[in-house]
Design a protein around this nucleic acid. Structure first.
Lengths: 192, 192
DNA sequence: CCTCGACCCTAGCACCGCTAGAAAATCGAG
DNA sequence: CTCGATTTTCTAGCGGTGCTAGGGTCGAGG
């Protein structure tokens, strides 16, 4: 049985390589540059090998999105737990979110801009996505204010962050004053 | 000289036809379905004709985006002027914005999601885009609150609306409670 | 050692955005 | 009205895309 185990391990390794390479190309040159040919050449296999791991490019994007969700959840929790008091925690959370989007735009795109074939806001939503939302909820729920559904509040706060992230990165908003926008967002939305 | 005038008029007509057709296909089947071949066939000309009007597909998207900006500005002003009082005005504005995004998703994408080769937030930004932002500013400036830059406040409010619009349409947020999210947004962000 | 099945690659499909160069239509001058 | 010039349009094709059918290679199990 050891042969099969080795093969399974090698397959898993190769799958990780595919995803890491896709991420690398996407971060460097954008998702449009992630073509099946280029990706195949980089991992030193032919194109059909990709299709033995993923149904197609969309599923590769989806897999990167799930990785990203796990990493984002960790980053958000790390930032929140390093801050003292509700306001500092929310500011740290918001900054960590925008930081993630700015530092890993390709992964952020995979999660929220592109079609990775993932289901959101449903019971069959993949666990990493639910957990990333949960990471937001943990810090934001306590500042939702009386009589306001924490889930709804988190959705709104998230939408605002998402808007800031995408509009800034698409050069729709000047990036210089991101800090002031975050301060204003927290001051107004959060009930401290 | 009348011959040239007629030709110019026919050219302008055809350009309008191109844009209207591109919009139609995009609204029905998404921008991915707007291919130069399909577009050319629909207008009953060959592909190269498209390139005598626009540099390429990107410029077609940009032209649709400018149309959309003009229409959005009008819709926002109409909604705002039909409401009495600051709060009603802001709520009407937000609803009109989200309504526009929901009703004309392809045009909204052309404006804010896709690359139409347009410059934003700069002095050489096309007039329609500046005017759409101005339409937001007109209603939002009066509820920015003391000591808060109206421009910055408008940017933040816009980002929140943009986040709600895109996340809702991409099935990242359940659409059922859009109304409650808007109410919460206005209650918290606007200083009345 | 040999067979057979898992694995992988070559080659190709239909489509994309875009363009060079030939063909057709239209114009103005004689 | 005719004919050359000019503008306009089309045919055909390039290099690229995501994806897949089919044949060959090579190693594992008997």
């Amino acid at each position: 049985m050891s042969v099969q185990e080795r093969k399974a391990r090698e397959r898993a390794d190769r799958e990780r390589l595919i995803l890491a390479t896709a991420r690398e190309i996407a971060e460097q040159h954008g998702w449009d540059a992630v073509t099946t040919r280029r990706l195949a050449e980089r991992i030193e296999y032919s194109q059909p090998v990709l299709y033995s791991h993923f149904r197609g490019k969309r599923e590769i994007i989806g897999a990167v999105a799930l990785q990203g969700a796990t990493e984002m959840a960790a980053a958000l929790r790390a930032a929140a737990s390093a801050a003292d008091g509700p306001r500092a925690r929310v500011v740290a959370l918001a900054r960590a979110y925008l930081d993630f989007a700015a530092r890993s735009p390709a992964v952020y795109d995979a999660m929220f801009q592109l079609d990775g074939g993932l289901a959101f806001a449903r019971e069959d939503t993949p666990e990493p996505l639910k957990d990333a939302f949960a990471a937001l909820l943990e810090s934001l729920g306590e500042v939702a204010g009386d009589g306001v559904d924490p889930g709804l509040f988190t959705e709104l706060f998230w939408a605002a962050l998402h808007g800031l992230a995408t509009l800034t990165r698409a050069d729709r908003l000047p990036p210089a004053e991101t800090g002031r926008r975050v301060d204003l967002l927290v001051d107004r939305l959060a009930v401290l």
